[in-house]
Simulated assay, not measured.
Amino acid sequence: MFIVNLTYKSKLDQIDQFLNAHIEFLNEQYELGNFLASGRKIPRTGGIILSNVASKSELEAIIEKDPFKQNNLANYEVTEFVPSKTCEELEFLNENR
């Protein structure tokens, strides 16, 4: 499992110009089953994506398709982790199930 931490490096008016394209990218990844959750940070300095793809290299290739990445609007930090404890609703993520 991966946490993708996006940090904007452009002003929000530039981010907003590509927001609809970014949302289309997210929608496509949800349809493909690659993303589990996503949303903006508060304050609005970027966003977070939770992904369950098989490998970091696969996720990095997916990120390259993000309009925010393609237009150099955000930095991306990818953290891999192995869920070992979850609430009941997220038990499907637990490696010990």
Rank of each mutant, 00 (worst) to 15 (best):
E88W: 06
L93P: 12
K65F: 01
D13G: 00
S38P: 10
E95M: 10
Q17F: 07
S10A: 14
C87N: 13
K69R: 12
L73P: 07
L12K: 14
V4M: 02
E89Y: 15
P67G: 05
K65A: 02
A61Y: 02
F2E: 01
V82M: 11
F92G: 02
L50K: 09
S55T: 15
N72E: 13
I23D: 01
F68H: 09
L90V: 09
E58Y: 10
N5C: 09
K69M: 04
L50P: 11
Y8K: 02
N71G: 07
V78D: 00
Q70Y: 02
S51T: 06
P83S: 06
C87L: 12
Q29W: 13
E80Q: 10
C87M: 07
L19E: 11
E58D: 14
V82N: 06
D13F: 10
I49C: 06
P83D: 02
A74M: 05
R40K: 09
D16W: 10
H22R: 08
E31R: 14
G33P: 13
S84W: 08
M1G: 09
A37I: 06
D66S: 07
Q29S: 04
G46C: 08
T86G: 04
A61R: 14
E64P: 00
E77L: 06
K69E: 10
L12N: 01
I49N: 00
N75T: 09
K9T: 11
L26H: 03
E91N: 15
I23R: 15
P83C: 05
L90D: 05
